[in-house]
Simulated scan of single mutants.
Amino acid sequence: MVTLKDIAREAGVSVMTVSNVVNGNLSKVSKENAQRIREIIERRGYVPNASARSLAKNRANIIAIILRGAENENTLENPHNAALVGTIIQKIQKRGYYTMVNMMKCREDITQSLRTWNVDGAVFLGMFDDEIEEMCAASDIPMVFIDSYSSVRQLSNVGIDDYKGGRLAARHLIACGHRSIAFVSPPVLRTGVVQHRFAGFCDELEQHGISFRSEHQFVLESDVRPEDTMELGRRLAQLREKFSAVFVTSDQIASYLIQGMRSTGIRIPDDMSIIGFDDLMICRQMTPQLTTIAQDLEEKARLSVDILFRRLSAPAAPAESLVLDVTLVERESVAVKR
């Protein structure tokens, strides 16, 4: 069995230097030594003793990933959540930590768990803004939130410019000649994300002299129930004389709407144009391929993990709040209206 001493001897450094590299304390090691030690570790197949590392650092080496979801709802069926969580797990594991993924339905479950779990930090997805203060009070472990619009001070968060995304979607549809546009989303008042996308969408319409009409807003009762969403698609098909395009706040919802519309004979984009949000893999798997507002989930995951580990190293450091840009990706689901 390869030991720290074996690695240190071959690298020509102290055992403590090797230990610092293994435990991620890279500020104490030169880049050259760290690289050489990593190469030796990989070549010789050294596997750190997780229990010993945890005891030495008085840490569990576990990061919790917590997703908010309704009872009996599998939030990882949402491809946005699945892609984001999968990338976060990869980046945490590369730092030598383990992950514990939990789906919880209410604030009481989350706050109680934070008080009892032996974890070193937590990443939160899909939290309600009015719950975040309670979560922060429940535990003093480092926390990072994703897509939060909470006003809680000392809150580390990584989000995107949802407002700009709404404007980009409306601007593209208007440029293609559409002036009567429907808006489809999960409950608008449920998350700040949807609120900001809706606000940007409405403001862009107004800037072009278009008043958004309330009868063109369609709000789903939950994030995504496939049959309910396809039924809405069939309803929209029957109302196609009222509008020529739809802005949908997620690609997943857009995919089910398209299925529902096509089941009635509606052609996308000839009879109805659709633009989504997120730029998930399903956009390129659909027919036609979906025009959408793209966000960089890889970068969102990377920055979230970076912030968390900076707070692990320096718990008293100021909170960091980052807003990532979004872009329009044109594909085949929006037609020019003639």
Results as ranks from 00 to 15, higher is better:
Val85Tyr: 01
Leu84Asn: 08
Met100Cys: 02
Val85Ser: 06
Thr99Ile: 00
Glu71Ser: 12
Met100Ile: 04
Val85Gln: 03
Asn72Val: 04
Pro79Tyr: 05
Thr99Ala: 07
Leu76Thr: 12
Ile88Gly: 04
Gly96Glu: 02
His80Ile: 14
Ala70Phe: 13
Lys94Ser: 14
Lys94Gly: 12
Glu77Asp: 11
Asn78Val: 13
Glu71Val: 12
Gly96Thr: 06
Arg68Ala: 13
Asn81Val: 13
Glu71Asp: 06
Met100Ala: 09
His80Asp: 05
Glu71Met: 09
Gly86Met: 07
Asn72Pro: 05
Asn72Phe: 10
Glu77Phe: 14
Gly96Lys: 00
Asn72His: 11
Gln93Cys: 11
Ile92Thr: 02
Thr99Gly: 00
Ile66Tyr: 00
Tyr97Arg: 03
Tyr97Phe: 14
Leu84Ile: 08
Asn78Thr: 11
Asn74Pro: 05
Val101Lys: 03
Ala70Gln: 14
Leu84Val: 09
Tyr97His: 06
Gln93Thr: 06
Ala82Val: 13
Gln90Gly: 02
Ala70Lys: 14
Ala70Trp: 11
Ile88Trp: 03
Gly96Trp: 05
Val101Gln: 02
Ile92Cys: 02
Arg95Asp: 05
Lys94Pro: 04
Thr75Met: 15
His80Lys: 15
Gly69Met: 10
Thr75Asp: 07
Lys91Gly: 00
Val85Thr: 07
Ala83His: 05
Glu77Val: 11
Asn72Ile: 07
Tyr97Glu: 09
Val85Cys: 05
Met100Arg: 02
Gln93Pro: 01
Thr99Gln: 01
Gln90His: 07
Pro79Cys: 02
Gly69Val: 14
Asn74Phe: 09
Gln93Arg: 05
Ala83Asp: 07
Glu77Ile: 15
Tyr98His: 06
Gln90Val: 00
Glu71Pro: 01
Ile92Tyr: 07
Asn72Leu: 07
Asn72Ala: 10
Gly69Ser: 15
Ile66Gly: 00
Pro79Phe: 08
Tyr98Pro: 00
Ala82Thr: 10
Gly69Tyr: 11
Leu76Ser: 12
Asn72Thr: 09
Ala70Met: 11
Thr87Val: 01
Asn72Arg: 12
Lys94Asn: 12
Glu71His: 12
Thr87Tyr: 01
Leu84Trp: 07
Val101Glu: 06
Val85Pro: 05
Leu67Gln: 10
Arg95Ser: 08
Ile88Asp: 00
Arg68Gly: 01
Thr75Ile: 15
Asn74Trp: 06
Gln93Gly: 01
Glu73Tyr: 14
Asn81Asp: 09
Lys91Ser: 04
Val101Tyr: 00
Glu73Arg: 10
Ala70Thr: 08
